[in-house]
Lab assay of single mutants.
Amino acid sequence: NITNLCPFDEVFNATRFASVYAWNRKRISNCVADYSVLYNLAPFFTFKCYGVSPTKLNDLCFTNVYADSFVIRGDEVRQIAPGQTGNIADYNYKLPDDFTGCVIAWNSNKLDSKVSGNYNYLYRLFRKSNLKPFERDISTEIYQAGNKPCNGVAGFNCYFPLRSYSFRPTYGVGHQPYRVVVLSFELLHAPATVCGPKKST
């Protein structure tokens, strides 16, 4: 009989979030998941669920729940959905087409922007091929755009693959930082360890 609440607040209220290319994953298990708490945590810009209804979450049980978190800019949030393409979905964080879970995003301009520009958040701009779903690539190998090998040196047709967002508070919403948490629900042929409040007794 599990009584402890799932530590969603640790994920959502973390002081620092990860850069999207090096997104963070927390496995959540053996706890009571009260998803209604999430609705009250922040004024969400996005709370979209796929393959599951957000209002039914509190009635369900899962084997595992994974919470992935990272920062992107406002106009990239739409890429965090099944079947999307674009720089983020292709080279940084890719959801599977049959994704079961929820994408939660909110504006973090007050936390993640600086007047002089916050350069701490990076994204991958160049990659030889698209990522597979939930693949994480943290390599910093020089990207070869031409025929000549780069031998690890940046220059003509040889690019450092990561680029930094420079978040400034005066930017338009599309270029402001957004914190994203992706909850993916895993149903294996194994005992369910993460249940809503109704199912945990």
Score class of each variant (00 low, 15 high):
T85P: 05
Y50D: 01
F17C: 02
V20C: 04
L131K: 03
Y39S: 14
V153C: 09
L122A: 15
G152F: 06
Y143M: 08
G155P: 07
G86W: 04
V20Y: 01
F156N: 15
P191T: 12
C102A: 00
Y178M: 09
G74Y: 03
F17L: 04
N151E: 12
P149L: 09
K198I: 12
V180Q: 00
S113M: 07
R25P: 02
Y21S: 04
A18C: 04
F126G: 12
W106G: 01
A42I: 11
R168A: 12
S200P: 13
P191V: 07
E10L: 07
K128A: 11
P96I: 00
L131Q: 02
S166N: 14
H189E: 15
C102R: 00
W23Y: 06
K148E: 14
D97Q: 09
G51E: 02
N4E: 13
F134E: 07
L111V: 14
Y35R: 06
P197T: 15
L122K: 15
F160I: 10
T193L: 10
E141V: 08
K148I: 12
K199I: 13
I88A: 04
N92P: 03
K94L: 00
D75F: 05
A154I: 11
K198Y: 12
I80D: 03
H189G: 15
F126S: 11
L131H: 02
A81C: 01
F12I: 07
D98M: 05
N118E: 14
Y50F: 09
G101T: 00
F8K: 02
Y178F: 13
I2C: 09
K199E: 13
D90F: 03
A154S: 13
I28L: 14
N92F: 02
G101V: 00
Q144M: 07
F160W: 13
P7Y: 07
N24K: 15
F62N: 07
G74I: 01
C6P: 02
Y66T: 14
A18Q: 08
K198D: 12
D97M: 10
F45D: 15
C49P: 00
L187Q: 13
F8V: 03
R27H: 11
P177M: 06
L41V: 11
L95V: 10
A67E: 02
L5G: 10
V52E: 04
F12Q: 01
K132P: 05
T3C: 03
N157D: 14
S19M: 02
L57C: 03
V20R: 03
S29N: 11
L60P: 07
I88G: 01
N1M: 06
L95Y: 00
Y35F: 15
C195I: 07
V115M: 12
P54T: 10
P177F: 04
V11R: 02
P177S: 05
I104R: 00
C158W: 02
N30Q: 06
N40K: 13
D98I: 04
K26E: 06
K128S: 13
V180E: 00
I2K: 13
E186V: 01
T193K: 12
K94W: 00
V52N: 04
S29Y: 08
N64L: 09
N30T: 04
P54D: 09
A145Q: 11
L41Y: 15
Y21I: 03
I28A: 06
